[in-house]
């Protein structure tokens, strides 16, 4: 949980690039991976992304270490996809697909690691500005995004509390004894957060 995801301060070229171009590059890379069908192309794409890590990081081992931590929580998904493609379309297709996904995940993580959340959200708010015409406040959408990001560690923490309470009462295997209190706690937390947002003048 704590290894993945959020911004890490730095002064590299990758850090200093504005959030807009970085997000645009991510989108282009995503479109580009669809067109890859040779192993060497995938290899080059991966090398380019890893080079980005090298530039953003302090040393090659540290960069590789960071990159590894970004994909580690997802390895089982990549493995499943790889096996599926290997069985249905052969190992070359499997390597191409998994390699493309890997590149995409790594690049997305690199953007998140080198860009402040607020800058990313500001880009989204700018891009979706036209939705104002159909009555949606882009700032609200931005707030929704940041609250979503903030909610991940909060809900993970609530889940930990529920699991502990469950163990203390010896109900370790019941799914319902886990899900119901978690949802209740999450809703109560949402209430308190709404109150805090109102107190900070969000609705004014």
């Amino acid at each position: 949980m704590t290894e993945m995801g959020l911004y890490r301060p730095g002064r590299s070229v990758v850090h200093r690039l504005p959030a807009g171009p970085k997000l645009a590059a991510l989108v282009l890379f995503g479109i580009g991976t669809v067109l890859l069908d040779h192993l060497w192309q995938v290899g080059i794409a991966l090398l380019v992304v890893l080079f980005g890590y090298r530039v953003a990081g302090t040393s090659l081992p540290a960069a590789l270490h960071t990159a590894w931590f970004q994909v580690r929580p997802l390895w089982w998904m990549l493995a499943a996809i790889g096996v599926f493609h290997a069985v249905t379309a052969g190992w070359q297709a499997a390597v191409t697909v998994v390699g493309s996904l890997l590149g995409l995940i790594l690049l997305a993580a690199l953007v998140t690691l080198t860009t402040r959340t607020i800058e990313l959200v500001d880009v989204v708010v700018r891009v979706i500005r036209p939705v104002r015409r159909i009555g949606i406040d882009p700032e609200r959408v931005g707030l929704l995004l940041t609250l979503g990001i903030r909610a991940v560690p909060v809900v993970a923490n609530l889940a930990g509390q529920v699991r502990d309470a469950q163990r203390a009462r010896g109900l370790a295997t019941s799914v319902r004894a886990f899900a119901v209190p978690l949802v209740v706690r999450a809703l109560r937390h949402a209430d308190r957060m709404g109150e805090a947002l109102a107190a900070r003048g969000v609705d004014d």
Partner: peptide, 25 residues
Amino acid sequence: RKVRQRVGFCFTDPDAQIVMPTVAE
């Protein structure tokens, strides 16, 4: 609105009050 600009409110559970992902934000 004017009242809330003058009155700061601090709650019991800081987790519910912190709305942005990082400290400075």
